[in-house]
Write a protein that binds this DNA or RNA. Structure first.
Length: 466
RNA sequence: GGAGCCAUCGCCAAGCGGUAAGGCCGCAGCCUGCAAAGCUGCUAUCCCCGGUUCAAAUCCGGGUGGCUCCUCCA
């Protein structure tokens, strides 16, 4: 397995700190609002990573956090009159539901900031004791970036702050412009406040990830975990700061490999709430099947930016349809062995920093080759069984193609319509038998208007929802 | 102002020094009562200008264009 490490900016062979195991921590969402397609893409990218590692034989432990203490959540509490818990539990449940619809496997550990306060407090205390952090007059605790000689080595954004150009707001008592809050003391009007030895308040943004990782992973003398992942926007300052805290608190590096996914863009611009161009996952799922969205959002390499377009989504659906048509053609049956050449090609592709384009091309070629072979020997049972095994393998590795193929093409068609379609098909078949082609074609046109496309085969007429 | 990423067929997209994968669209065929589906065949020298090399889309230098980070952000 080769992984592109964003710190070293090169592909590296994956050599886990514990043989045969992979520990992964991915930055999850701040739960104050619905997830958008960008959250989906990140979740999907790391889902591909964990699935690939699992198929390659690694025992994977994946942690993905929920940030449930945050300024934006507090703001929402104040505006809505609801409790923080009500708000965060609502969005966490919604997030998980939507990710399920996309076929994202659940993380093994889903830590929350509110459940990690002891670990957070302990780490801040350690940093204070070791003199890597300082407390200012209002009770805030800051990390002193000047004490960490390795600060900047993660994001390579060491650059000495040009006072005039930096967009970072300078707090009077901060010793260095890049110092960041580990702990924010509560100013009286705030509702949430946790007692600690240094002050009553709440954690800064970066500390929770570091603390959770220490809490849940054993690590080694060199690293806490194997892979740390997240969106490209988190590289600086979030991951730089996480790395600094952990390094100074534990005496070793946080992660051996750092992976960052590219953005989902709309019209060539990053999708973000501040730009107001967000496409919420719930809206997308109302329009498109989760599996199609999954295929689409994963169809471009995770490190590239992804420009969302409905036309391309339709192209993705067509490609997925072809796989399911093959599955329909070889069903029902019991899968035999995955074709070894096919299996190797897929694993080689995904093992190369998740080269999904090669993987999808490999699948397209397998589908075409199988269809061709089936054209010349339609009754070849062994071929069909192998195809079923191949498709099951695709499902395990990439997370699509797992549905029953006839139902895949009937998503969104209710029972009444199914009955009607069957009646029309029966009538058409009678008309065809009687060589009344005008009538049979008229029925086909009617079905087309209903959004149903039909195909005559040796086994009878099949239909699909377009 | 600082730090990066990217630029390949009409569209999406691989390629990581050895002579351009795959998908969509289009065209021509096979199949079909006609279609649909499926299959076959056809369609690019890689933003521009220099350089390195026997050999470059791939490396180096300079342009041009787009995006991102330095503020919450997947």
């Amino acid at each position: 397995m080769q992984i592109y490490d964003s710190v070293q900016k090169t592909k590296l062979p994956f050599e886990p700190i514990h043989k045969g195991k992979a520990s992964i921590y991915v930055c999850g969402p701040t739960v104050y609002d619905d997830a958008h397609l960008g959250h989906a893409r990140s979740a999907l990218a790391f889902d591909l990573l964990t699935r690939t590692l699992k198929v390659l034989g690694y025992t994977v432990t994946l942690a993905k956090n929920f940030t449930d203490i945050d300024d934006k959540i507090i703001k929402k509490v104040q505006q809505s009159g609801k409790s923080m818990e009500e708000i965060t539990s609502f969005y966490i449940a919604r997030y998980l539901e939507e990710m399920d619809a996309l076929g994202v496997q659940r993380a093994d550990i889903e830590p929350k900031a509110t459940e990690s306060l002891h670990a957070i407090e302990a780490m801040i205390q350690t940093l204070l004791d070791k003199d890597f952090a300082y407390r200012i007059s209002n009770g805030d605790v800051y990390f002193d970036t000047s004490k960490d000689s390795a600060y900047g080595t993660i994001s390579h954004q060491v650059g000495q702050d040009d006072e005039n150009q930096s967009r970072v707001a300078h707090t009077e008592e901060k010793r260095n412009p890049k110092d960041f809050a580990l702990w924010k003391a509560c100013k009286n009007e705030e509702e949430i406040c946790f007692e600690t030895a240094f002050s009553a308040g709440r954690p800064g943004w970066h500390i929770e990830c570091s603390a959770m990782i220490e809490k849940h992973f054993s690590g080694t003398e060199n690293y806490s975990i194997d892979i740390h992942g997240g969106g490209a926007d988190l590289l600086f300052p979030h991951h730089e700061n996480e790395a600094a805290q952990s390094r100074c608190a534990t005496g070793h590096e946080l992660a051996k490999y750092w992976m960052h996914n590219g953005f989902v863009q709309i019209d060539g611009e990053k999708m973000s709430k501040s730009l107001g161009n967000s496409f919420f996952l719930k809206d997308a799922l109302a329009l498109y099947d989760g599996e199609v969205l999954r295929y689409y959002l994963n169809s471009v390499h995770y490190r590239n930016d992804f420009n969302f377009s409905e036309q391309e989504l339709q192209v993705a659906k067509k490609r997925l349809d072809k796989l399911y048509r093959l599955k329909k053609r070889v069903s029902p049956g019991t899968p035999s062995q995955v074709n070894s050449v096919f299996k190797k090609a897929l694993l080689d592709a995904m093992g190369d920093d998740l080269n999904i384009s090669i993987a999808l091309a490999t699948i397209d070629e397998m589908v075409a080759a199988t269809n061709e072979a089936l054209d010349s020997s339609p009754q070849n049972k062994a071929l069909k069984k192998e195809a079923l095994a191949n498709i099951a393998f695709i499902d395990a590795l990439l997370g699509f193609g797992g549905k029953e193929p006839f139902s895949y093409f009937q998503i969104g068609v209710d029972e009444a319509l199914k009955m009607k379609i069957q009646t029309m098909l029966n009538e058409r078949s009678e008309a065809k038998k009687a060589k009344d082609f005008a009538r049979s074609d008229a029925i086909r046109d009617e079905l087309t208007h209903l959004g149903i496309s039909i195909m005559d085969t040796a086994e009878g007429t099949l239909w699909e929802k377009v």
